[in-house]
Computed example of a mutant assay.
Amino acid sequence: MNFIGEPTEDQLAIKDAVERTCSQFDDEYWRDIDETGEWPEAFTKAMAEGGWLGVAMPEEVGGAGLGLTEASIVMHTVARSGAGFSGASAIHLNIFGPKPLEIFGSDEQRNVHLPKIISGEQKMCFAVTEPNSGLDTSNLESKAEKQPNGDYKLYGRKIWTTGAQRADKILIIARTTPKDQCSKPYLGLSLFYTDFDKVKAGATPIPKMGRKAVECNMLFFDGYEIPKEDLIGEEGQGFKYLLHGLNPERVLFAVEAIGLGQAALAKATQYANERRVFGRAIGQNQGIAHPLAKSWAELEAAELMAYKAASKFDQKLDCGAEANAAKYLGAEAGFKACETAVLSHGGMGYAREYHVERYMREAMLARIAPVSREMILNYISERVLGLPKSY
């Protein structure tokens, strides 16, 4: 998709194929897993069988070798199908999460693990955030202490680790050199891809407001053993490796929020056409029609920014401003569309029967993760507008 949003024939084919897969999983499927908290196993299996988990992975390891634009089309289509963040989050990590392993891992690490991640055989979780550091990754407290034989022992805590209850592998960052021995605070952090044991890691789900089927966890490490072969790249360079995936993650969150908002808008539009009060469709009233029209405009604008960012990334152009703006605009437009959908349904918007209350609960996620609105505005004000740093 180019800067004006016109898809190629191949991109349209991707969208159509993903839509066919998603059509197997209707609103009731997603409502049920939201209520039960069961992982959407049938959905993730279908997406793996379709090859979509490897859309952005190299062909030599079983991927499709495509770019962020195509990955965005996949995730946008999933969310827009009504799967929302329950569906998108179940496969989100597979799309760009293994990039540090692909780019900085050894040939053996890539060839052994990536095909299994793409097929769905290997289930990974990703642990970065900690209770006392939040977005300040340079101040992580977890540490991986090197042992005489070259292996490591991990100590510390992680929070908001998604999918840890079913993962058999973990991508995790920890400090290997004390901060006071590093010339810069972000140095001395190392990245590992290693076996994961949820019992030894004390993985504990965190009750939350939405996306119940895709759980987040607290992790506790006290001497957790990591073989030296599981270090990715060079010791102390883990933070640099993580930076490579920040812009793609922002873009994917953006299109997922936009897709969710578009699903909500479709529900609200249908309801506004069908619901009759005082002898006429409620959509005839500007109090209903105008907020829906405004949401359409905001979602379309955010979508253009997201695909502009993806296109620039695929062309190896600087896309930091666009990726951050897309995440901000997508999250805001998606949430506003979901809120408008609930309000357009009136009292029934509060009922689970019409699904939009689930959409609104899930839409809050993109306003918070993986980076807050305020940090995005800090980035734009400093890096784009040239204003003094505020923190």
Rank of each mutant, 00 (worst) to 15 (best):
P227S: 14
A164G: 05
G188Y: 14
K143Q: 12
E256I: 06
R31T: 15
N94C: 10
A337Y: 01
V112K: 07
G330C: 08
A167E: 01
G245N: 08
E256N: 07
F253A: 11
T44S: 01
E353N: 10
L329G: 00
Q165N: 13
I226L: 13
R275P: 00
K267D: 12
A369T: 02
V277G: 01
M348E: 14
H244V: 07
S390W: 02
H76E: 14
F3N: 08
V251H: 05
D27M: 14
S311T: 11
E234C: 02
A351T: 12
E41M: 02
G120A: 12
A310E: 07
R275Y: 12
E303I: 01
I117V: 11
I14A: 03
P207A: 13
S372K: 11
Y224E: 09
G156I: 06
V255P: 03
V74R: 00
I118W: 05
S142H: 04
P207S: 12
G320F: 05
Q122R: 15
F196L: 04
C22E: 00
I170A: 04
I95Y: 04
E121R: 03
Q315I: 00
Y391P: 01
D195Y: 04
A266G: 00
Q270P: 02
R275D: 06
K179S: 10
A268G: 10
E41K: 15
H113G: 00
G97T: 03
R383S: 09
K267F: 09
A201Y: 07
E362P: 07
A310Q: 03
E9P: 00
G156S: 10
Q181D: 06
A337E: 05
G287A: 14
T69E: 04
W160P: 00
